[in-house]
Every structure is written in structure tokens, then in C-alpha cells.
Design a protein around this nucleic acid. Structure first.
Length: 584
RNA sequence: GGUCCCGUAGCUCAGUAGGAUAGAGCAUCAGAUUCCUAAUCUGAGGGUCGCAGGUUCGAAUCCUGCCGGGAUCACCA
């Protein structure tokens, strides 16, 4: 249960009652009313802006309306205190028992706590990674991969049905380059001296085994074939091998897509022609000549008639080319067909996760989606900014040409999957991210990964100790849920409960904003509340979780922290990070 | 030159779809602690939210214009 929306309903009900009594205008718009925890805890547990939002339409002064509503709310009896404050806020304080009851709720829900139904089961298609299958994934891909995956988890938690998708760019010129590079390795495997890898081909060693496989399977038969024939065979094999490698890289990060969608298939099954014919039928395709970009005309620019899509009708800056000068489709054309296909498969919500270098592509893609779906689908493109690697405070230099790029595998093997994932999410997606190997591996309070995982491990440590020290104690969830929560009297204990109770609301707002990083920050704060409680027990032994001479209090406190561990686990689950039970 | 993103404490960053006195970590400073529940703890100082207008009960948040930083700019993927 999201308690904030619960009380929102109570408030709107009371407003409705006031209207019915003729004390308030009817037909007011309640949609702008919010119920939030106030910034300052001294103001109470909940605050609503209802009076301020409605004052104008109701023709009343905010404070007067606030007083009216406050009296009504007071009479309703859910609150121990109802105050009108500032320009017209209504501050509400709940019975401590209301908060305490949350502990049992959480113990009941376990790590499903926080599931909300904002999505009402609607299908969201999340496309992420979609790296070209021309080599292993490097760090640059890591952020988008983790972000997309966590966003997908988050949306599921918020009640959406999610399809995780990877678009395989297996049709372009780079794939041909890949095939030629592999063919070279094939000749090498047959004993030919190939010398240096020519400029423009992929030099990476990872292609060597594919060449060997082809040599073992075909002998020198490929060499005897016409180019068009061997190219076809080699290309197919190369893509398969690359995708297998990429799937392995993704698996190392704990990522698994449900759909791998081939660009080539869109060409082969006619979907590109079909989609473009559809746009043509709507009068959105024409042949024309584009102006050169202002301020920066390319050297080889020349006016040239092109097949264009009227993306300007949907908010783009210029119309966009669908065909290259040689008559073949641009990358954009099959991409339109692809997005159309996602929609036809039932997803009215589309999310693409791209690198920052593709941000200039957003407008045309949004335009295309609007055109092809008649505005019935929404596309949100999430941009992940660059990741800068640091080692001992020094930036790690990477050069693709020199082959000195850090791969995703390198990073995962060095710092671990969980740390990579958490750090990639501990920053807003559209802000650049510094990734310092030393800091990520550090086991200290300064490292948020450690800090959050440690909270979870610490709780399990306490539970293990309790099992060992307190004879006959029953630590099952059902037993803990029956503990006398009224014994949770300390302010720090209530603070922790209130923090936990925010989780469903966090899930909902993070999901609506498509911002999984909010969960990471929330978990840091939750961990902080728990560690604070622990530290209090260090100063004051009567606040420790395990009290040898008071089993009832011990049970209540263990219930509290067990619940906290579930919330941490649920939150980390969204991020795709394991909630470990013991630090090593 | 166009477009998009960013600009918040000395540093790194949050800021919950417009809310009350703008937060956290690091660093700095001042205390506590050698104890063991497991990786010290508590507190303090520190801000013209890039600048200037606008919208309204109310702006770090929305709009406009500047300044500064980054990405990108017919046919690549």
C-alpha cells in the first residue's frame, strides 16, 4: 500500500463531503493535490497543498479553505494532530501505531514490498544496449545496459508489463566490414600470412577463433567461391558469434533480453517497404533537396534530390532522408519500421535507451513514432551520458584504434557485477559519470555500494547472532510479524519505519519519471537511517537490537530490522544488485 | 550557426512532476572513542541555486533572452 495515495483519497473524500454540504464549490479539479512527507519532520508526518491548489477555483483564501478542511480532517479521526501552516499547508500527524503497523505489512509482503499498480498491466517496450555486433562490449555500453535493465525492473515493480529488447544492427556497412575482417582471419587460419590488418578492418583478436572455425568447417572452399557467396556465409557466422559474445557480456552483468530483433529481418520480410508505403499513403514522403546545415557545411556537400520523410510536421527541425545516394535505405528507414513493429506488437509505451552521441536523433524518431502510430504511442528516449574511467585519480585513456579500450568484462571482473551496476545507477542518466576503480572497490562508508549492502549484511548478522544467543527464539517472518510493535518507542526506530514506508511511493514516482537512480539514492538514505539506529545502540546499550533480558523488545526490534532488510532487498532487486547476507 | 544536455556548498552530486528555513557525502573545523553489535561516532561552519527578466499565493524546478561547459549536425550505425 502506498500510504500517501491512501491519505490523498481520504483528503479528496473530505473535500467532496464539504462540497456536498455546500461549504465548498463543486466540480473542483483535485488532480493537483499532493500528499507528501514534509521536508521538515517537525511539521508532522504528512503535508498537503490542497487548500492552496484549490483556493482560486473555490473563490476562497488559502488559509480559510485550509482551516475548513483541517477541521473536517480532524473530525475524521485518522490523525493525532492537524495544523494549518505557512501559506496554507495542512500538516498531519499520524498515530505512532499507524507507522508501527507498517512493520508487519512489510514482513508480510517480504521483498514484494513496494509493488504498485501504476502501470495497470500495460505493456512497455524497453529497448536498450543495441550495440553493433562488431566486437565485445566496452565500458561505454555498460551504463546504458545497466540503466535500461534497471528501468525495466522498475517498471515491472510499478505494475507494467515489460518487454526488454535488443535491436541488432546486422544490416549496415559495418557488418560487411566485420565479415571481411573475419574472412581475413579465416585465410590466416589456413596458414596464409596476412600481415598487418589493413586500415578500416577490425583488428581485434576476438575474430581469430571465428576464422579458425570457418577454416575447420569449410577448409579452403570459401576462398574458391565468388565474393557474394562467401560474404553471405561469413557474415552470418560472424554475426552469430558476435551476438553470442555480447550475450555473454550481458550475462556477466546479469542482463537478459527477451527479444533480440534483427534489422536485417525488416529488410528481408518487406517491413521497411510496407512501413514506408504506409507513410507514403499519408502523404508524408516526398523527394526533395535539403539545405546544407547552417554554419557548418560539409566539404563534399552538394544539392541532391533525396527521398524524405516530413518529420517537420511532427516537430523535427528538418525533414529526414530515408534513402542513401546509392538508393539503399538509410539507417532511419528500418528503424521506423522497427518502432512501428513494436507498436503493432501491443506496446503503446516505447522507451529507447541511447548514448549521448545519438541525442540528435531523438526528434526524428519521435516524429516517426507519432506519424506511424497516429500519436497513439508515446516514445521516451533516455540518454546516457559518457562514463569517464579513473584509476588512482588518473583518467584512463582509451583508444579504439590502438585497441586499448576497456571492455565491459574487464570492469565486471575487476570490481564485480553489483558494484558496477550500483555505481552506474548512482547518478542521473543524463549527467556525466566518473567511475573510479579504487573508490568503487573501497569498503568504507564513503562508498555507497558498500554502505547499502553493508546495511543488509549487518541486519543478517544481527539475526544470526540472535538465533545463536537467544535460546528458542523464532525468527520466522510470521513470528516476527506478531511481535509487539508498540515497544518500538525510540525516535530513531520510528524514523526508520517512516523511511521504509516511503518505498512504494518512491517506486511509483521513479517509475513515472523513468529514473531508476532515485531508487539508488533512496536506498542510501534508508541504509543511513538503519546505520544511525545501530550507532545509537553503540552509545546506549538499551537501544541494541538484542537485549538478553527482554525478549519482547528484542522481537519487536528484530521485526523492525528484518523488515528493513526486505526493503533493501526489494530496492536492490530493482537495481539488479544482490542483497548479500555477509560481507567478505 | 542550428539542435539537445548540463551549470546548486571548496570538491562530487541529490533535490521526490511548482511548495515551507535548498540537502547528502567528501574536505575543513570542534568534540567523543581504543570500546568491541562488524569497516569509528557526534556536532559546527560553509549557498545571490550561472546572470537578467517573466508567469503566480509560491520558482533551483516552468517560459524568454544572455553567459559558460559538453554532445551532435545530408548519405555512417
Amino acid at each position: 500500500m502506498n500510504i500517501f495515495s491512501h491519505f490523498q483519497t481520504i483528503i479528496t473524500d473530505q473535500l467532496g463531503a464539504l462540497s456536498a454540504e455546500g461549504k465548498l464549490a463543486e466540480g473542483l479539479d483535485f488532480s493537483k493535490i499532493t500528499v507528501e512527507p514534509p521536508r521538515d519532520a517537525a511539521h508532522g508526518d504528512l503535508a498537503t497543498n490542497a487548500a492552496m491548489v484549490l483556493a482560486k477555483a473555490a473563490g476562497m483564501k488559502p488559509r480559510d479553505l485550509a482551516e475548513l478542511l483541517a477541521a473536517k480532517l480532524e473530525a475524521a479521526g485518522h490523525f493525532t494532530k492537524v495544523d494549518v501552516a505557512g501559506p496554507g499547508f495542512i500538516n498531519l500527524t499520524l498515530q505512532p501505531d499507524f507507522w508501527r503497523a507498517q512493520v508487519a505489512h512489510i514482513l508480510n509482503a517480504r521483498n514484494t514490498y513496494g509493488e504498485v499498480d501504476a502501470g495497470r498491466g500495460e505493456l512497455v517496450n524497453v529497448e536498450y544496449v543495441s550495440a553493433n555486433p562488431t566486437g565485445p562490449m566496452h565500458v561505454g555500453h555498460t551504463r546504458g545496459a545497466v540503466f535500461g535493465d534497471a528501468l525495466a525492473n522498475l517498471l515491472e515493480k510499478a505494475g507494467y508489463k515489460v518487454c526488454r529488447e535488443y535491436y541488432i544492427n546486422d544490416a549496415g556497412g559495418q557488418i560487411e566490414v566485420l565479415a571481411r575482417s573475419v574472412f581475413l582471419r579465416y585465410r590466416e587460419a589456413l596458414g596464409e600470412d596476412i600481415g598487418d590488418i589493413p586500415e578500416g578492418l577490425y583488428p581485434g583478436d576476438y575474430l581469430v577463433p571465428i576464422g579458425k572455425e570457418l577454416a575447420a568447417e569449410y577448409g579452403d572452399k570459401l576462398k574458391a567461391m565468388p565474393e557474394a557467396d562467401w560474404l553471405e556465409i561469413v557474415r552470418k557466422r560472424a554475426i552469430e558469434a558476435m551476438m553470442e559474445m555480447i550475450r555473454g557480456d550481458l550475462a556477466a552483468l546479469g542482463i537478459e533480453h527477451e527479444v533480440f530483433y534483427s534489422e536485417r529481418s525488416l529488410h528481408e520480410n518487406g517491413a521497411v517497404e510496407e512501413t514506408l508505403a504506409y507513410l507514403e499513403s499519408k502523404g508524408l514522403i516526398y523527394t526533395g533537396v535539403l539545405e546544407p546545415p547552417k554554419g557548418k557545411t560539409p566539404e563534399d556537400w552538394e544539392p541532391r534530390p533525396q527521398t524524405l520523410f516530413k518529420s517537420t510536421e511532427f516537430g523535427d527541425d528538418v525533414d529526414r532522408a530515408l534513402k542513401k545516394s546509392d538508393g539503399s535505405w538509410t539507417y532511419f528507414a528500418p528503424d521506423i519500421a522497427y518502432h512501428y513493429d513494436k507498436y503493432k506488437r501491443g506496446a503503446a509505451h516505447l522507451i529507447d535507451v541511447w548514448g549521448a552521441d545519438h541525442s540528435g536523433y531523438i526528434k526524428r524518431m519521435s516524429a516517426a513514432v507519432a506519424a506511424v502510430t497516429d500519436g497513439k504511442a508515446d516514445l521516451d528516449v533516455k540518454i546516457c551520458q559518457l562514463v569517464k574511467l579513473y584509476r588512482n585519480g588518473e583518467p584512463v585513456r582509451m583508444s579504439k584504434r590502438a585497441g586499448s579500450f576497456v571492455t565491459l568484462r574487464d570492469v565486471v571482473e575487476e570490481v564485480g557485477r553489483d558494484a558496477v551496476r550500483f555505481m552506474m545507477l548512482y547518478r542521473k542518466n543524463d549527467a556525466p559519470l566518473d567511475f573510479d576503480f579504487a573508490k568503487v572497490k573501497e569498503q568504507s562508508r564513503e562508498n555507497p555500494v558498500f554502505y547499502v549492502q553493508y546495511a543488509h549484511a549487518r541486519i543478517h548478522s544481527v539475526l544470526r547472532n540472535a538465533q545463536a544467543e537467544v535460546s528458542g527464539i523464532d525468527l520466522s517472518d510470521s513470528a516476527l510479524a506478531k511481535a509487539d510493535m508498540a515497544l518500538l518507542r525510540d525516535e530513531a526506530e520510528l524514523t526508520l519505519i517512516k523511511q521504509m514506508a516511503q518505498f512504494p511511493r518512491m517506486v511509483q514516482s521513479a517509475a513515472e519519471a523513468h529514473e531508476p537512480h532515485r531508487i539508488a539514492f533512496y536506498l542510501y538514505e534508508l541504509a543511513s537511517a538503519f546505520h544511525g539506529l545501530w550507532n545509537k545502540g553503540k552509545d546506549d546499550p538499551s537501544l541494541r537490537f538484542i537485549l538478553a533480558d527482554d525478549k519482547s523488545v528484542t522481537l519487536a526490534r528484530l521485526a523492525l530490522i528484518r523488515a528493513a532488510a526486505y526493503v533493501v532487498e526489494a530496492g536492490l532487486g530493482i537495481l539488479g544488485v544482490e542483497a548479500i547476507e555477509e560481507m567478505r
